[in-house]
Design a protein around this nucleic acid. Structure first.
Lengths: 249, 249
DNA sequence: ATAGGGCTTTGACTTAAGTCAAAATTCAAT
DNA sequence: ATTGAATTTTGACTTAAGTCAAAGCCCTAT
């Protein structure tokens, strides 16, 4: 159980992955951990400085909510991924004024979700002395921009069936990459992956896909009736990869 | 008419606004201009290196298009705003490999649209020698992230009437800021702004708002019937600012 | 193993927004 | 000013997806 921040935790974060032990110590000196239970909101305001976050354990959803209570999840953040960088940089210089606003809301979606909080001011100082990190940061933000562009494409140009198909294919690809990593690391050969385990509730999934639970349920059923997938609670088996790919286009 | 790139053009670009004449000369030495007519596609592939762009005259739409030909416009780019930075940074180091893909398509939407093209490799070198620009670049990308987050919020949580209302209010605000700038610059007092001139076709506007021309037309009519706005071709007069604000929430 | 709460599915119905087609308006070039 | 093309509006109709309500399922803690 994660209770104290160690250098090895920081090393897993892309931005810090190439830092020396001393440098990691420095990062640690101005960062701190915080733990949340499922459903708890990560209230950005309560922190001394606005800064950015990284999930170390559990999962966090980043979402927008309308005046009528409708929710849309833009990102699900898993361990070692950072979020809430925007307010640090968008008006740099003004950031310490404590009135920064975060574009998104954040909520833990698993018990014992641990995040590390890295305050803006010391981080900006650190970056200035280690300009090589700027490119890493630019890379992270650029990847997120591409993700959001694709997300908008999905939401505006595809119907729910296509969006769900695309999501399933992405998760399958992730699982495959993960498998290959394990194979390489352990020097073993694992059997081909043809199923995925949904890591979030179907309600959260529907919110991420820009629809509602009932419509998602019906769309799963349609794909199952067409013998393209098999749904067993959270386990989705892909029966016809080609057809799924065809639909997602 | 813009035919030759001059330092004063570069100076208007946020990223380069604080550079010396020599530094601007350097930027100019590896950049070049290109001119497009309305409807022409800015084909990123045809350029020697992938790099980023800045509009100097006219306007460019950045859009996604589906396999069925449906289009969604994510950004309209006006003079001195940059675009297409993502492929430079997302996999930095690999960028020179010439196989970078741009997340969005780009098309000129006015005749005589002039863009400046800044190739990735020399730009990255320049940044390395002028690390202060990194923060400006991070600021630009962060602002774009916030914009896209808001855009997704609008598309997923608001209906067309709300989206249009919000758009009109934003444009009104822009016009007001513009007015204030002129007043400050010229030391004169202008009368209050209560109308805006649409700078893009209604078809493009509908695509940007995530709907279609017919629905946009009907939504304009609804707002007009409710005496909230008055539509005279491209000129939109706001008759009831409060109500418009109420609707947009 | 069983009760209870949280999730998920199903059914019947509504609605916002899309489609297709035709008419009307606006714009730009003579 | 006039004409033809491009843009925009209007009307009639369809449809994907949302709403509301009820039933069913399945964890998890006793």
């Amino acid at each position: 159980m994660l209770n104290k921040l160690e250098n090895k935790d920081l090393k897993n974060i892309f931005l810090f992955s190439e830092l020396s032990e001393e440098e990691l110590n420095e990062i640690r000196s101005f960062s701190h951990l915080k733990k949340f239970d499922k459903g708890e909101i990560l209230s950005f305001d309560s922190e001394p400085y606005s800064g950015f976050y990284c999930t170390l354990d559990g999962a966090v959803k980043l979402y927008k909510i309308s005046s009528e209570g409708k929710e849309h999840i833009l990102h699900i953040i898993y361990p070692y991924n950072t979020f809430a960088e925007v307010p640090i940089f968008e008006n740099y210089g003004e950031v310490v004024k404590n009135n920064a606003t975060y574009p998104l809301n954040a909520m833990a979606i698993e018990d014992n979700t641990v995040v590390i909080i890295i305050p803006a001011r010391p981080l900006l100082n650190f970056l200035e002395n280690n300009p090589k990190l700027y490119l890493k940061m630019l890379s992270t933000l650029s990847k997120r921009l591409r993700f959001l562009n694709n997300h908008i494409e999905n939401l505006t140009l595809l119907d729910v069936k296509k969006r769900l198909s695309k999501y399933l294919l992405e998760k399958l690809k992730e699982a495959e990459l993960n498998k290959e990593n394990i194979e390489k690391k352990k020097g073993i050969k694992l059997k081909k992956i043809n199923s995925i385990e949904l890591s979030i509730s179907k309600n959260d999934l529907s919110s991420h896909l820009g629809t509602i639970l009932e419509t998602l349920s019906r769309t799963f059923k349609k794909l199952q009736d067409e013998k393209i997938i098999e749904v067993d609670s959270k386990k989705i088996t892909i029966l016809d990869f080609q057809k799924l790919k065809e639909i997602s286009k």
